[in-house]
């Protein structure tokens, strides 16, 4: 069994996993970080988005062993005392209904700002959300929340 060590939300963690263990399984089952969700499990819905070495990826399609030596940030790691500006914006703008897709939406939104800057047009946001699905169809408020959250980041 491969031994993996990584830095998750600023803390060194290590453990053994199988070759086939997915990053999302390692986070949820080994580390108990259940904020990262498994939605479709086919890399389409984006509920499992986390950051690996600063880039948003789908943790359901990433092998835990491949993340050995990486820095991983999950939804649990974005708040610092108070809510992250993007989390706060989702709260303010009612950017969620059931909340299942929200961790992935927020991790995708933070990556969007890191890549495209703080001034995001509605077009850019909608285009960049291609890989995140909300089944409550709350996109309208999600887009508003990301636009507002981006400005405050």
């Amino acid at each position: 069994m491969p031994e993996v060590s990584m830095v998750v939300n600023g803390q060194n963690v290590s453990g053994s996993c199988e070759g086939r263990t997915l990053l999302v399984e390692f986070l949820r089952e080994n580390l108990g970080l259940t904020g990262t969700h498994v939605g479709c499990d086919t890399s389409q819905c984006g509920a499992c988005v986390v950051h690996v070495n600063g880039k948003a990826v789908k943790a359901c399609t990433e092998l835990a062993a491949a993340c050995d030596g990486s820095k991983v940030t999950t939804i649990e790691g974005v708040a610092n005392g108070s809510l992250h500006p993007m989390q706060e914006a989702f709260r303010q703008h009612h950017g969620l209904q059931c909340g299942f897709c929200t961790p992935g939406m927020i991790m995708a939104a933070i990556d969007m700002v890191n890549t495209h800057g703080k001034k995001l047009s509605e077009d850019t946001i909608r285009h960049e959300l291609e890989g995140n699905i909300c089944r409550c169809t709350g996109y309208h408020n999600i887009v508003k929340a990301i636009k507002a959250g981006a400005k405050k980041m």
Binding site: V57, K58, E130, G131, N132
Partner: peptide, 8 residues
């Protein structure tokens, strides 16, 4: 794909 797929 989508942005997350393009990152990998």
């Amino acid at each position: 794909g989508d942005p997350h797929v393009r990152n990998k």
